[in-house]
Structure formats: structure tokens, C-alpha cells
Nucleic acid binder design. Structure first.
Lengths: 219, 219
DNA sequence: TAGATTGTTAATCGATTAACAATC
DNA sequence: TAGATTGTTAATCGATTAACAATC
């Protein structure tokens, strides 16, 4: 299977969230691409194409089996695998992520938290004991952790990333406002809140000028 | 000026962050599109095209004046305006956003926080007194607030959005994992963390299979 | 069977990149 | 002036949408 583009992965996630949630309420056995498209504001052809990309075949005149779709997406995105992560920076955002219980259903488990502040080291955040930065690299090595979540305040991001990469992580989920680079084989996903802000601020500023601007949904 | 696409707005934000940060250290008067492109991993032509879109002209053989670029981006994205926002939901993530001091430089000011939990109402979070949900609509109306930040746990998002829209907000910044819809003139920007997770989980799952996959940077 | 829905190819659309004359 | 850099048009690339025969 060729490697999937980011836009496709994100749509797969949206399908999965929609189907697994609505399935929880009242399980419909099957669903058509048109119904999914309607709910998520996506073109029905796009839905069928995405499904076909991950090897899902529908049934003519009927649609797709919800369970089968969910299973295929879980398989493709690797939700049934166990992904262990370390989190660095136990400020507000770090605590929020530690406390978030929704990750487990996607196979993500934060196994340790680290902080530079000695007053925080040893305390518990969301049931997770905060470790000192000194123990970061050995921990990652010893446990073979492949994902690091960066929620440090500022400016130390790149150095931290370098250390993590040399310790062996294969992906960095960067919530700091600083850009981070890594070798090609290490995925860096930036979640800069300021990117969202650009769209918000622009809209609020120009909203009165262009009342008829067609609505473009984010995400 | 025609309305700018999301990708353009996000690139403008990245230019702005880079130029205003690097300018803080050691102010170079001018910078070339190639230098910006190099730093941000963007095509130099793209940089020039974006600048030309917002009416910025460079100087042949020299490049662009950093201050002028920053000013033009600030003007276009509306950072010099004052944007007031209410925040709904003072859990971990809500607190993190309230405590984040970086918004002000983009003109964003969170003027009030609201929570359903009576035990939280009246307490202070990051210097902001938490108000009851009953007072949300009147507050938005009275102060003419145009942006709402949603950091509630789950499932109440759509109802809340409807109330906020009827109270007059023009944009919703949605950090909840639930999809929210609004009339065309109201911008909804979703910051679903799970979308990022799709890319992370996929990479971690398939990383060993495709060691030679070209590196695509996020953000 | 008839008709709704799929799977896929072709057409369109938009965004990115290349090329290059104009400019300082 | 010579040469580096811009601004813009044209070419490419990729993603989305339309069309429609195949299918259940």
C-alpha cells in the first residue's frame, strides 16, 4: 500500500469518529457514502475513493457495513497497536493532555511525564508521577518509546527534540509555539495554535466587509 | 481584496512568527524570499506570491523590508484590532488557554470565562473570574463579543454553539472533540486533536515498512 | 426486474513550482 | 554596469468533483 497523504488520514479519522460515535447510540448495520458525506460535509465520491484506497468494498444499492469500515480504518491507522509516549512539560497544556482519557481508544498511552521544574518532579499529574529531565533520555531508550509529546513553554523545543531523536523516538507531537526540525524518518507534527488564530483573526477583521463570502469549514 | 484562503492565512502567520521572532534577536533590515523560504521550508516563489497578494512589493536585488512585511501581515490578519472572546469550559485545556499570555500580541483578549460546574463558578482561573452559564448569553450580547472559544468536555458543543450564535458571535474556535455546525457567516474553526493523532498513529504503525518514504513536514 | 448505490475513469479545479523578463 | 532578486506568467502537480457503466 502506498503511503497515505495527510488529508486522507484526517478524513479517515473523521469517518472513524463519526461512525464509531453514531454506532454507539443506535447501531445501523450499513451506511451509504451519501449519508456519511452529508454528515461530514464531504463529497460522496471522495468517501468512496478513500474507502477504496484502504481496500474497503461497498455493496451496490446498500452501502458499507459500519463495523467493517471501522475495523478497516482502525487497522490502517494502527489504533489496535499500542503506542507509548512520553510527555515533556507538565504545565497547563501538558496536564490537560495527561488528563485526557480519550487517547486510549486510539492506542495511545502516555507512559511517563517529565518536567524541568524541580518543584514539580515527584508530584503526580493525572495519576502520572513527574520525572526529572535527567531521566528522560534513559527512560526513552530503556522502554523503546517511539513518540514524544512536547508541551514545554518555549525555546527549548529544538534542543529537546534533538535529544529525543538521539534517544530513538520516531515521532514528535509538538504543541509548543516553536518550529522543530528532525531527520526525514522522524515525523514532526506541529499543533501551533497560532495557525488557527490566523484564520479567526482574519475572519473577525473582514467579516463585515464580505458578508456574502462563501462559508468554508475548517478541519 | 478577494478573501484569502486558509492555507495562505496560515503561511502569513508563519512568516509573521518567523520575522517578528528573529527580528527580536538581531534586526536585519531586509530579508530575501529565499531566506524566508529556506527557514520555513516553503518555495521562494510562494513567499513572493503571498507577499504580492497582500500588496507587498520587494526591492530587486535586495529583498523585503522586515518591518514592512510584519506591518502588512499584521494589517491583513487584523492583529492590531482588538478581538474579545469568551471562553466556555474551564477544565485543563480551558485553563491552559486562559493562562497563555501569547494571544495579546495577535489582538486576542479573553474577557470572560464560563463553566457549568457550580463549584467552579466564582473561582479565579488565571486572573479571570469564572461566571455561570446562565450569564453567558447576556454577557455576549451586552459586550458585543464576537468570538467564543469552546473547551467544554463533550456533547454539549452544538447546543452551546447555537446559543452563542443566537447571542451574536461571529466565530467559534472549537477545541472539543465534537463537530459543530453554524450558519455560513459564522466561522467555525475546529482544533480536533484527534486529526493530528491520525497522522502520528499512522506513521508509528507504518514507519518500519516504509523507511524511505519522503519526509513531509506537518503544519 | 428496476432502481439505487457503488467503483473508477475522466474532467475540473486549485495550489505549487518553474521559467524568465523586469528591476534595482 | 553586472548580477542578484523580484513579480508574474506558464507549466506542473495533486486533489476534488462529475459522469457513468457495473453491480447488487
Amino acid at each position: 500500500m502506498p503511503s497515505l497523504r495527510r488529508v486522507v488520514l484526517e478524513r479517515l479519522m473523521r469517518y472513524y469518529r463519526f461512525l464509531s460515535e453514531s454506532g454507539a447510540k443506535k447501531p445501523p448495520q450499513t451506511i451509504t457514502s451519501a449519508q456519511i458525506a452529508e454528515a461530514l460535509d464531504i463529497d460522496p465520491t471522495q468517501v468512496r475513493k478513500d474507502f477504496s484506497t484502504i481496500g474497503l468494498l461497498g455493496i451496490g444499492r446498500v452501502g458499507f457495513e459500519v463495523c467493517e469500515v471501522c475495523r478497516a480504518i482502525r487497522f490502517t491507522l494502527g489504533f489496535d497497536q499500542r503506542h507509548e509516549a512520553v510527555l515533556v512539560g507538565t504545565g497547563h497544556l501538558g496536564s490537560a493532555l495527561l488528563a485526557y482519557s480519550g487517547f486510549a481508544r486510539y492506542g495511545l498511552h502516555i507512559v511517563a511525564a517529565f518536567d524541568k521544574d524541580p518543584r514539580r518532579v515527584g508530584t503526580k499529574v493525572a495519576g502520572c508521577t513527574v520525572k526529572s529531565m535527567r531521566s528522560l533520555k534513559p527512560f526513552v531508550r530503556r522502554h523503546g518509546v517511539r513518540l514524544a509529546i512536547l508541551t514545554t513553554p518555549v525555546d527549548v523545543s529544538q534542543k529537546l527534540a534533538d535529544r529525543l531523536v538521539s534517544a530513538g523516538v520516531k515521532a514528535i507531537w509538538n504543541f509548543t509555539p516553536t518550529r522543530v526540525t528532525a531527520p526525514p524518518e522522524v515525523l514532526v507534527r506541529d499543533e501551533h495554535i497560532s495557525l488557527g488564530l490566523s484564520e479567526i483573526a482574519y475572519h473577525l477583521t473582514h467579516e463585515t466587509e464580505h458578508p456574502s463570502t462563501p462559508h468554508v469549514r475548517a478541519s
